[in-house]
Amino acid sequence: MRFMASPRTMTNVVLLSCGSFNPITNMHLRMFELARDALHRTGILSVTKGIISPVNDDYKKLTTKTLVSGYHRVQMAKLATRTSDWVQISDWEVKQDLWTETLNVLKHTKEEVESEMKNEDFTVKLLCGGDLLESFAVPGLWNEQHMTSIICDYGLVVITRHGSDPERFIYESDLLTRYKNNILIVKEWISNDISSTKVRRALKRNESIKYVVPDPVIDYIKQNGLYKAQELCK
């Protein structure tokens, strides 16, 4: 008698990326593709949706002249993802009265997905770059209980960035080492050092950002006069 192996049960995954997206770049979009490929390679995880959630204007770290309004950042993100059939934009965080902590954005996302997927088995994971993982070590920046809940109750998918070493950082952190099985490190073998900061710097210097930012986003920036160079002297 032959015994057939039972097929492995697939778990649906929703990837959530939080950040300023000021402006959104091709690397932000690339992160979703890298993460989906890596999760699918496990054979037990199936990515069904990606969600980009631009941060609220009240975010203390970025409430400077360089942070354009949430409305513009949401519109640029929508333009950047209009050719994607699985990555979408959430404006829930932007529409809140005050800045919302990442854990609460994850909780809201899970509640929304639960109402959509009914009884389907799924998990929400936070998609981020190696720099966000390393920010866990910055004193006072993260609530430790929130960090624990983010990793334990949701999980992280971390895309390596130029100059970052997430594996070493996990090793040097007792908290991250304790829950390292809930952290998936995805290596980006095609070196890419694109960042919103560098995009803003290029715009300030009136330099091209073509092929770094999606063309519709470039057009939107021009049409709305965003990230104008500041007058340095009078």
Rank of each mutant, 00 (worst) to 15 (best):
V74L: 08
H146P: 03
V113M: 12
H72A: 10
S173N: 14
I150P: 02
G225K: 13
E111Q: 12
S191W: 00
V74K: 11
N22F: 04
D58C: 07
L156T: 03
A137K: 15
K65R: 12
C152A: 07
E112G: 07
W99V: 06
R8F: 00
K118H: 02
K118F: 00
L132F: 04
T63F: 06
T9G: 00
V94R: 11
F32E: 13
L141Y: 07
L79V: 08
L15E: 05
W189V: 03
Q230T: 01
S149T: 09
H108R: 15
L156R: 03
I209K: 06
L16S: 05
W99F: 14
G225E: 10
P166R: 03
S17C: 15
G130C: 09
D165T: 10
V14I: 14
V157K: 04
T66D: 14
G130Y: 05
V212Y: 14
Y179M: 09
R161V: 06
K204H: 09
L126A: 06
G140Y: 06
K61N: 13
F136R: 08
L176F: 02
I159M: 06
L226Y: 01
D153T: 03
M27T: 11
I24D: 12
K228T: 00
V87G: 11
D57I: 10
C128N: 06
A77S: 15
I190E: 15
T11C: 07
R30H: 13
S6A: 01
L16D: 05
N12T: 01
S195P: 09
D57A: 13
S69T: 13
S46G: 05
D219E: 09
I218G: 03
H40G: 15
S69G: 15
G19T: 10
K222R: 07
D121P: 01
K210Y: 10
A35I: 02
M1W: 00
I159H: 01
V13H: 01
K118I: 00
T11F: 01
D193N: 15
L39Y: 02
N119Y: 00
K95W: 08
